[in-house]
Each structure stands twice: as structure tokens, then as C-alpha cells.
Design a protein around this nucleic acid. Structure first.
Lengths: 340, 340
DNA sequence: TCCGTTTATCTAATCGATTACGTGCTGATA
DNA sequence: TATCAGCACGTAATCGATTAGATAAACGGA
């Protein structure tokens, strides 16, 4: 392989000079010499080893994404896909490659965190809810900067980018109320997610603000996935359609599941009941129905997280930075005024 | 940071001995000493730097995935998602992390390939059709092993994992013929993909084998995406329904597009016309109609590619290895016998 | 003309590991 | 007891870069 030594020999200078040319500093090099070095680099098809540079604290232009999910596969999930895709895109624009840590192998923080921080990445993005509580203390013991995305931002020392699930849920339920609904059911998400609790709280607050009494019989405990929404809608479809005119689901998967589960019960959406989700996940053009949801702009979220991480890597600020992103209503075809 | 030197001091041995303990070789260490070293590593919370080890030709346990597409975003594409997800899963099982190279930044082989090979990855997987022709000559000049996945396997020196698009298309068209169809239309894929041409060829051969004359009026040139299928079906829906009883699409996106485009024309599938795809892309449970398609088992493909790459990395065999994977028919709800 | 500055470059230490080579010790053999 | 093999481990070179410190030449002011 061609290394810096060969380039130095070929251009008749020391390796130090080649390095100064390569990095455009920290010491100046005469233009004439510089040109000779560049020529030698071209002739020998030289490209510096990222590894050797990292030995001196230089960056490797790699950001690690720890994308773990306790149950489902991350790559079959449009939410994770959108975020990871956004990270890769945002990274590529800034010349950063992205390393993905995904799989059961990384679930144990004691063995995983040292590997995340073994020098291959300049910084880390965490997509690990609800595992962050176990992961973050380990990460804080090391020097690799990291940003937590959606969840686990409760720790005040951790830089994070997050959405306000509470506000989003509240806005959506307020919207349903404005459309004339007063009997609004709710399918919850997994209760070990902080966001699921926040969304439930936003739902209750919006009702309270409108002077509507909270009815626990309209709340169906569930998980954050399609099957959960489908199963609950299939079991309770008729009851829901009779007792409520709208159904607010804890996320878009649940909402789509509910949609199909209700359809299987012969309930029409939005004719018989309105359905609203939250997250704004893009299921692609192949998908049929457009869901009314709160869009959290996952690409924008990813972009902001990457930029924040780059800031941490480059400037290592002393105090943690927390960003909260707003959700925006996206009207689809699943909400209408109540029939009655 | 704690490094090997501190561990050596703490356990009263030299760094060499610590290294022998760490690597369990190449020289033996007395059990007693080994225990002392392990204890010191635990006490100091020591974990070796992957970077420094790489300086001595050791592996970093990272495989790079070059996932480029000339037009669409890779992460909004279920095909790429399935393959990349499969690679990440297969890698995690073998203790490998995956680095993703994606974005316009890497389209130019002259600047990109040196970066792919800058030491951060032990090997590369190429998902770059149809760009491989430009990328592969550059890669062959370097020492980083690589495997090409689907396309660009034409170069006899390159190890690859591929499906036989020709056989798959032929099998699918033969199946349609067996179901009673004789007038079979075809939506092609982008003609700069070798696979698209192979699929078209398989279509023609299957017709020829059954003694059915090839009718160029039944062939609609297009691209490998949903919109292409949709647009062609929307424009020509009635004509297609009248002139053919089945439609074989160059991939699953096109097929889904055709499905919706025909529906918009009031054509029923499979009542009025049967539709078949090829690839076996999984659109997730949220998706409605089940397409009849040729499944190429993308997870299995990814798994085999990772294993092949690991073989190249570990054993550096002298001759390239080429694998061809079969496609399997997956019956869905979009093919029936012709109505007549 | 002499000395201090500036400029351009070289020498060598350094990063954190791996490993070839050298050394001291033990025990078996002649 | 001298010799030699083998074991256990230390010393130091090495990987490919970066960079502080040393050095030599050019330049400018008193």
C-alpha cells in the first residue's frame, strides 16, 4: 500500500511536510513544495488511512446509530426507516458515514457500550427507547458524545432531540373536538414508553379543557404496533362504534390496525367513526388510505439530531442541549364530523 | 482513557503480556498471570481500541454497505430496506457492525472508493446497480474485499450473490400460462438494468416455449417504480384489459402501481385481469392486497452475501465465488384463471 | 556586520495496540 | 556440573499518520 512515507520520498520532503499539505496546516508550506507533494499523491494514488489519523484524535467522519427495539425488527418499521434514512442523508451531506448498531447483541449495555465507543465512531445517535435508561449511564462514563432521539430525554445531562408527545396528542384531540366529537376513544401504546404516557395525558387534558368528562371505559390499553390496534378493534369494534364517534390512536401503526379491524367489523371510516393517529409515518405510495395524523417530520428530526451531534463533536459545549420539535396536523381521509 | 499500558502497570506485567492475554495468543501466558491481567482490565474498565488494533492488520469487525441508487432514496424503498436490514441482522449475529454509504456524495467512484477503503471497513457489500460498472474497476485496484449483490456480476473476477432474473421471469410467465392465460402483457423495468432485460427475455422465452407468438403491442416500456406502473395502467388500462388476460410486471412496485392504475380505470384484479410481479418485496402488514410474485427471499440473500464476504475477509480465496439464488413462486390474490 | 525574527522544513516523540526477538529461569539429560 | 530445550515474560520495533521542538536559511533593522 502507498503510505505517507512513500509520498514523502517521492516528493523529496519529510512526512511532516506531507502531513501539513494534507491537512492544510497547522504549519504553512511553500506553494512550490505543496504542488510537488500533491503531484506525488496523485501519481501514487495516495489516500490517507482514516484509522491512523484517528490515532491522533482526528475524526473518522463516522456517526454511529444505535437503533434498538426490544421487540420488533427495526428495518421492517417505517418509523425507524424514516429516521435512519434521514440520518444517513443528513450525514452524507456533511461528509459523514453512518454506522448502524442493531441486533440483540447490543442489548446489554455493559458489553455493548464499550464497543460503541471503541473509536470507530466520532459520536452516537440513540434510537433506543425504552432502553435508554440502562444505556445512558454507561455512555456518560465515556467520552464519546451522543444525542438521544425521542425518549430518554428525562436525564438533564443528556443532549437530545425530541417531540412533544403531550402537545401533539392534545392538539389532535382538540382538533377532533373542534370537528364536533365529544365521545372520543383512545388506544394507548406500550406503557413503558414515556411517550405513550404523555400521549394519554395529552388526550385527557384536551378533554378536560373542553369540559368533557374523561370516561375510562373508552380507553383501550395496548401496544405501539399494528397488531395491537387490529386486535383491539376486531374484539371491540361494535362497542367502540356505539360508544364513541372518534378514536384517537397512540400512533399510526395502531391507527392503521384499528382501521382494518373496524373494517372487518363492518364499521366505516370516517362514516361511522373517525380515526386519528400520531407520528406521521410514511407508508409509501403503495399504501391506500391516507390517515389523519400529527406529523413529526422524521427527516427534519433526523437532520436536527445529526446537526446537534456534529456540534457536540466539533465544539464540545459544556452544557447539554435539548431540542423539542413541534408536531403539525396532517389531514387525511379518516376524520369527518360525527354522523348523528 | 485507560489503555493497555495502564493495565500492564496495574497488573505488574508488560504490555506484550497484556496483549497476549487479550488475544489469547499468539504466545501462552501462565494462568496465574492471566487472571491478574483480567482482574486489572475489569478494575480499570479497560476495553481495547479497535482503531489501534486495526493498525496491525487486525479486523475492526465492520462491513461497509455501499447502497446507491441513481434516482430514488434507498431508505424509502422496501427492497433496499429488506436487503440492508438482512445484512445488519446477519452481521450482528457474527459480531459485525454495518456501515452505510449512501448519498450523492458517493456517486463518483474516484473520490468515493478511496474512502470506502480507508480502513474503517474490513470488507464491502455493493448494492449499486446499475453503477457497478464504474465502481468495480476502482475497487479491484485496492485490497478491500467486496461482494456485489444483484447486478454487475458480469465481471468474472468479482465475487457476487445474485438471483436469476431470467429464470424467475420465465417461471412466472409459465405459471400464468398454466393457469390458462395466452395473452400476457408486460410492463418492463428501466432498460439500463441488466435484470430488467433478463426479465423481459424470460417473458419472451416462456411464451416461445408454450408456442405463443410474441406480440410487441403487449409490451409497455417503463421503469422499476410504482409511479411507472401506475401511469402506464392509468393511460392504457382499458386497452390492456381488452387485449390481455394477464399482466406480468418487471417488479413488485410496478405491479402495485398497475394494480391501482387499473382499479382507477374500473378494471378488477384478478376478475378482469391477473397481475403478477417479481421480487417478493414485503410491504408490511399495513398493506392490503397480496400480490402474486416470485419471492427472492431478500433476508436469505443478504445473509448469504454477508457470509460470502466474511469468507473473503477471513480466508482470502484466490478465485472469485459466484452464487446464484433461486426464486420461488408466492401465490397471492392477484392471479386467477382468465374469465372469458 | 551582527543579531533577532520569520519562514520553511526536518527530526523525532506520540497515539494504542501487536509481535519478532531476546533473556532469565527451570528442569531434564549426559 | 555443563548443556540444552522449553517456558514465561520483557524489550523494542512497528503500523501510518500528527505535531511539538529543533534547525537552517533568508531577511531586516540597528
Amino acid at each position: 500500500m502507498t503510505n505517507i512515507k512513500k509520498v514523502a520520498e517521492a516528493s523529496g520532503v519529510s512526512t511532516a511536510t506531507v502531513s501539513y499539505v494534507l491537512n492544510n496546516g497547522p504549519r504553512p508550506v511553500k506553494r512550490e513544495t505543496r504542488d510537488r507533494v500533491f503531484a506525488a499523491m496523485r501519481d501514487l494514488n495516495y489516500h490517507p488511512s482514516a484509522i491512523a489519523r484517528r490515532m491522533h484524535g482526528k475524526r473518522v467522519n463516522t456517526i454511529g446509530v444505535v437503533a434498538l427495539h426490544p421487540i420488533r425488527s427495526v428495518f421492517k418499521d417505517p418509523y425507524f426507516n424514516a429516521v435512519i434514512g434521514g440520518i444517513v442523508d443528513a450525514g452524507a451531506k456533511l461528509g459523514q458515514s453512518v454506522m448502524i448498531f442493531n441486533g440483540d447483541r447490543w442489548l446489554d449495555p455493559d458489553t455493548a457500550v464499550p464497543i460503541f465507543c471503541d473509536g470507530r465512531c466520532d459520536g452516537l445517535l440513540l434510537l433506543v427507547a425504552p432502553l435508554g435508561d440502562r444505556m445512558i449511564p454507561e455512555l456518560k462514563m465515556r467520552t464519546t458524545p451522543f444525542v438521544s432521539i425521542n425518549e430518554a430525554a428525562s436525564d438533564p445531562d443528556v443532549s437530545s432531540v425530541d417531540i412533544s408527545s403531550y402537545d401533539g396528542a392534545k392538539m389532535m384531540v382538540r382538533y377532533l373536538i373542534e370537528r364536533g366529537h365529544r365521545r372520543i376513544a383512545h388506544f394507548t401504546g406500550d406503557d413503558y414508553y414515556q411517550s405513550a404516557n404523555d400521549r394519554f395525558r395529552g388526550y385527557r387534558e384536551a378533554l378536560a379543557d373542553a369540559g368533557i368528562e374523561f370516561d375510562p371505559r373508552l380507553v383501550y390499553q395496548g401496544r405501539y404496533d399494528y397488531e395491537s390496534g387490529y386486535d383491539r378493534a376486531l374484539e371491540n369494534g361494535k362497542a367502540i362504534a356505539q360508544s364513541a364517534t372518534a378514536l384517537f390512536c397512540a400512533n399510526d401503526y395502531v391507527a392503521y390496525g384499528a382501521l382494518r379491524g373496524l373494517a372487518a367489523n363492518g364499521v366505516c371510516v370516517p362514516g361511522d367513526i373517525s380515526i386519528a393517529g400520531i407520528d406521521g409515518v410514511d407508508f409509501g405510495p403503495e399504501h391506500g388510505t391516507k390517515l389523519t395524523t400529527m406529523d413529526q417530520d422524521l427527516e427534519g428530526l433526523a437532520d436536527e439530531a445529526v446537526q446537534l451531534l456534529m456540534h457536540l463533536i466539533e465544539d464540545s459545549p459544556l452544557i447539554p442541549i435539548k431540542k423539542i420539535r413541534p408536531l403539525r396536523l396532517r389531514e387525511g381521509d379518516t376524520v369527518a364530523a360525527p354522523a348523528r
